[in-house]
Deep mutational scan, measured.
Amino acid sequence: MLYVKVKTEDGEELVLEVEGMTEDEIREELAKAGFKIEEIEVYEVEP
């Protein structure tokens, strides 16, 4: 499983499960949803 931890400019932290997306695609999708991203951390969790 691939997850991203996202910190927004307003200090909110989100953890999202993503599969088959690049970091650029993740940033693009979050921007479309109205999030202003300060930091993204991508990590993989073994089942």
Rank of each mutant, 00 (worst) to 15 (best):
V15N: 05
E28V: 10
F35I: 07
V4W: 07
Y43N: 03
V4E: 00
E28W: 12
E25P: 00
T8K: 05
G11S: 02
V6T: 02
D24M: 10
E23C: 14
Y3S: 04
E9T: 12
D24H: 09
E41R: 11
E46D: 11
E38C: 13
A33M: 15
I40F: 10
R27C: 07
L14D: 01
V45D: 06
L30Y: 04
L14I: 12
T8W: 07
G20S: 05
E39K: 11
P47A: 07
E12Q: 13
G11T: 01
R27E: 03
F35E: 00
G34F: 03
G34L: 02
Y43F: 10
A31K: 10
T22D: 05
E38Q: 13
L16A: 02
A33V: 06
M1G: 06
D24S: 11
E44K: 11
A33Y: 15
K36I: 07
K32H: 06
I37K: 06
E28R: 13
I40Y: 07
K36G: 04
E12P: 03
E39N: 12
M21R: 11
E19C: 15
I37A: 08
E29T: 12
Y43M: 08
E13P: 03
Y3F: 10
E19G: 10
G34E: 01
V45L: 10
E44W: 15
V42I: 14
V45E: 06
E17R: 15
M21C: 12
V4D: 01
V18F: 15
A31W: 09
K5F: 09
M21D: 02
E28I: 10
V4T: 01
V18P: 00
L30A: 02
K7T: 12
E12S: 11
V45T: 09
E19W: 15
V42H: 04
K7I: 12
G11R: 01
V42N: 03
L14E: 02
G34P: 03
E9P: 11
T8N: 06
K32S: 06
G11I: 01
T8M: 13
V42L: 07
G20I: 05
R27F: 07
V18N: 01
D10W: 11
A31V: 12
L14G: 01
F35R: 01
I26H: 00
E13Y: 15
A33I: 10
D24Q: 12
M1P: 07
V18S: 02
K36Y: 05
E25Y: 04
K7Q: 05
Y43D: 02
V42Y: 10
D24A: 13
E17H: 14
G11F: 02
Y3L: 11
A31G: 07
E46M: 14
V45A: 10
P47H: 07
E17A: 13
L2Q: 07
I26C: 04
E38H: 13
E13I: 14
V6K: 00
